[in-house]
Design a protein around this nucleic acid. Structure first.
Lengths: 259, 259
DNA sequence: CGGCGACTTGAAACGTGTCAATTAGCGTGG
DNA sequence: CCACGCTAATTGACACGTTTCAAGTCGCCG
């Protein structure tokens, strides 16, 4: 199978090219995450072995509030978020649910490349575009490229640390602490990706989450989230208008969060 | 450096031998976990390349209630629990703590081989004997042995699923559900390792945990744990005497746990 | 204009935490 | 052997944080 054929077969947007797909323009994370590395790999592969099959992900776009992947659904693809916000969550039969993490541009939906299925339910919050890579391609790359391997391991460590903090949140922190921390962590994460609205100050961010998302992530009820956020606003800690959020007093917010 | 020298240098129990260390007799998990595989590897290595340096872990024993590893302490070793119970936990500056997992014989203290440091505080519950492997040895083995790699990945998946469930516990389950689930999960885990007291029934287990361990693992207070356990006992769901626990009515306990 | 979903707010209920007093268990040393 | 001191566990009364329920507002879109 030629490089051209494979790329065309696995990609549903004919205009994409391996080196710099059109859809990665808005993906602000392609500098730091996997995408860049994979594309780099693809380029060098194309240069070194012009005849070798190209590793390239197919791009998909999905509207807000849709499910991207069902729990325990088998998939031969590994997906990376290119644009928009999504959630990765667990659900109980009786309807209770727990959001494990918010997925932002550049995030791997599941960092375990060897598990073609997972308990998690993946849903879009906003419109989301994501990129599917063939699992087997990535595994091969993992074996061949030490650099890629290192990168995956460091992402793995990072995710684990986040998961640990979330556990501390749910087990031992009050609602105020949880929500304050969440705002700080998200702001920080977005700042790292250059996704803040302010050119300079890294404190105003697009904030598409509904309060029930925050509730499900922090193990609270939407009503209580509303009360805490109202209090934060009354205390001039944060400002929310429309779908954007600004941290007004980072110092005091940190104190509330006990960070 | 000869194989003999290396083994002697990294092992503080002179009588141990690579193929079947004396201390692994009581370690009931060596059939299924890492230990077996590593020892297998060591044996075949010794046979194939008699001159190559032996990969062998040093064995240590530590009394109950001691800290095995401080948070963020750098270590060139990867440790596996051989015997006894330990905890892996996170602590807040103000004293609140969250136990992330209980470590049983056969468990890897940290499954991330590439991270020489972690936030976790590792403490012994009972007397614990563990085995330290040189991180660099394991990493080399990981690269060389696909079989070993697979094993680590499957352990990794398993730990992730457990972590997910713990998140659901803390975020969305009531105290009763959490404690019932914990009892069932632990009983099950011990049964898998053949660590039950009954020869047949897999329901009576050694249970060295104090109630404050349960509290710290489940995000509750010791007082409340006591109340819930008392109720479970009054309702004939479980029986506790001394340091052993027996599930009396698995069906009803499962119902309480919403499993 | 009407309807719907997201959010807000208050009152009351509930689960869990806090505090305090008491008992049981266990290792240590006299 | 017992006395001592320590930690673990139990129990009840009360406080607090969070949930539940309910009513109402706001903004958005058909």
């Amino acid at each position: 199978m030629s490089a051209h054929l494979l790329a065309a077969a696995s990609n549903d947007m004919g205009s994409d090219r391996a080196a710099a797909p059109a859809s990665c323009g808005p993906c602000l994370a392609n500098k730091l995450g996997f995408c860049a590395m994979i594309r780099g790999k693809v380029e060098s592969q194309a240069n070194d072995h012009p005849g070798a099959p190209l590793l390239i992900g197919s791009v998909h776009t999905i509207p807000a509030r849709r499910t991207i992947c069902q729990p325990n659904e088998w998939s031969e693809f590994v997906t990376i978020i290119c644009d928009g916000w999504a959630t990765s969550s667990l659900a109980l039969p009786d309807g209770r649910r727990q959001i494990v993490s918010f997925l932002l541009p550049g995030d791997l939906v599941s960092w375990n490349l060897f598990e073609p299925t997972s308990d998690r339910l993946i849903e879009s919050v906003t419109d989301v575009t994501y990129r599917n890579f063939r699992r087997s391609d990535l595994i091969r790359m993992l074996r061949e490229s030490p650099e890629f391997f290192e990168k995956l391991m460091s992402i793995c460590v990072q995710y684990t640390r986040r998961a640990d903090q979330r556990l501390l949140d749910l087990g031992r922190r009050t609602a105020d602490e949880r929500i304050a921390r969440m705002i700080l962590v998200l702001t920080n994460k977005l700042a790292k990706r250059g996704m803040c609205r302010d050119r300079m100050g890294q404190d105003r961010i697009d904030f598409p989450l509904r309060q029930h998302h925050i509730a499900d992530a922090m193990g609270l009820t939407p009503v209580h989230v509303s009360k805490v956020l109202s209090r934060f606003r009354r205390d001039q800690l944060i400002e929310i208008d429309g779908r954007s959020l600004k941290v007004l007093d980072q110092t005091r917010l940190r104190r509330v969060a006990t960070m």
